[in-house]
Design a protein around this nucleic acid. Structure first.
Length: 401
RNA sequence: GGGGGGAUGCCCGAGUGGUUAAAGGGGACGGGCUGUAAACCCGUUGGCGUUGCCUACACAGGUUCAAAUCCUGUUCCCCCCA
């Protein structure tokens, strides 16, 4: 374990939004170092989506950093809570998942999370193993420790209430359960995105009422998605998946707004504060070109999940397609039912358009090319041979096999 | 338990008998400009081999030459009173 208290503290609080409360964190660190006993860091995830993206990676990176300092992570798979769905930041009740889905998601989740976390310093637990054993009595006792007024202070709830969208009673119970998780695992620190503050503070309350030492709450920023406005999430389609091919990652990262670059550097790469400050200053003064820095950002990120070489390949591929307007090297190949076909049908059959209407519109909108030559006749009958490359827009390609 | 209001396309939202595949906005997609950035400009945004036809305004029926618009029932949501 890192013995230097100052270094510990600096590292733990680095790139976080809030530490609640800071003095307690100092105390905990001191105690841990003195006794050479790692802190138990709680991190809860709801296995609601099977794929992790850069947004999930933000807290995971932080956890890894804590592990590198010598601490233990307890990764709680919220297989029980997932059945409810965290209301945090949501404007509507979430659909409830089936047990089968949850199991499956949990598996891919941990698999992907270990791309970042250290297995030896991680304990994986499922909260159904204790939550499902509680009876109504236990629940009432716990629920009595929270007030409706307190719950309604939450932005998401009060907003939904004001807007007349329904709030399920079970959603009120979500923070209660998450808090109970903290009691069960006796966490020292709970880490989460800023949207988790309420739930995590509830954990402190419950621990205290249970006679335990309360956990310290550590929040990390929420990563904004590639659209530049909303929190990264798969359902909004603004995510960069951790298992996506390097080429895709590169393209997506290049499309983020400039204003997001520094955030991404801070939250998604392993560059030091000094390095990032240098880039930030360079960009501000105009010494550095944003396009170039974004490339470097993309390569840094890809190198974490793949390696430098594949990052470079992704960049070269990107240039080929977008700078030199050439055809990418690995295009999906598609079989076609006939070698002479109506253009519109061809686009639908190759999957480049989902309906005849869409295909027509694409042609009329001048975005369809066959072997880099524009097609503009909606009624054209086309001779197709193997190896022909069909293109819609700038990035959808298909090769006829 | 009683009374009232509402459900429109991906989302928000206009439309209260015919000229409405449904205004407007957002989003998305395509094009231009660029650095696949932002901003801005233009176009598209139910299906169909498409100057036409079909399906659509919660669901199921009905009135009418004609219904998103009127009537009845069903489902869901909201509000007020208890």
């Amino acid at each position: 374990m890192e013995k230097d208290l100052k270094a510990q503290q600096r590292a733990i609080t680095q790139r976080t939004v809030e530490v609640l409360p800071l003095p307690e964190l100092k105390r905990k660190i001191e105690k841990a170092v003195k006794a050479n006993k790692p802190l138990n860091v709680k991190f809860g995830v709801d296995p609601t989506s099977p794929d992790l993206h850069l947004g999930h990676a933000v807290p995971l990176n932080k956890l890894r950093q804590l592990q590198d300092l010598g601490h233990m992570v307890t990764l709680i798979i919220g297989d029980f809570t997932a059945r409810i769905g965290d209301p945090s930041g949501k404007s509507a009740t979430r659909p409830q998942l089936s047990e089968g889905e949850i199991r499956k998601h949990a598996q891919t989740y941990t698999q992907q999370a270990f791309k970042i976390l250290d297995k030896d310093q991680t304990k994986v637990v499922y909260n159904s193993s204790w939550l499902s054993r509680l009876n109504f009595n236990d629940l009432i006792k716990m629920a009595a420790k929270f007030t409706v007024a307190r719950l309604m202070e939450r932005d998401d709830f009060s907003k939904r209430f004001k807007e007349n969208t329904p709030i399920g009673l079970h959603e009120f119970l979500y923070p209660v359960m998450q808090a109970y998780d903290s009691v069960v695992i006796k966490s020292d620190i709970e880490l989460g995105g800023t949207d988790q503050i309420f739930n995590m503070l509830a954990g402190r309350d419950l621990q205290e009422k249970d006679g335990q030492e309360a956990q310290v709450v550590l929040t990390v920023p929420l990563l904004v998605g590639t659209d530049g406005t909303q929190k990264m999430s798969k359902s909004l389609g603004n995510h960069v998946g951790l298992t996506e091919p390097p080429k895709e990652m590169f393209g997506k990262i290049m499309s983020i707004p400039d204003s997001l670059m520094i955030d991404y550097f801070k939250l998604c790469t392993r560059l030091t504060d000094e390095e990032i400050t240098k880039i930030e200053k360079g960009l501000k003064s105009g010494k550095l070109h944003p396009g170039e820095e974004k490339r470097s950002l993309a390569k840094h990120i890809i190198s974490i999940y793949y390696d430098r070489k594949q990052a470079d390949t992704a960049e070269a591929e990107f240039d080929k397609v977008f700078k030199e307007q050439q055809v990418p090297s690995d295009i999906t190949e598609v079989k076609v039912s006939s070698n002479k076909m109506w253009v519109v049908k061809l686009l639908v059959e190759t999957g480049l358009a989902s309906s005849n209407g869409e295909a027509r519109r694409a042609i009329q909108g001048n975005s369809v090319k066959l072997n880099s030559k524009p097609l503009d006749d909606v009624n054209a009958e086309i001779d197709i041979k193997s190896g022909d490359v069909l293109q819609v827009g700038k990035r959808k390609f298909v090769k006829i096999s």
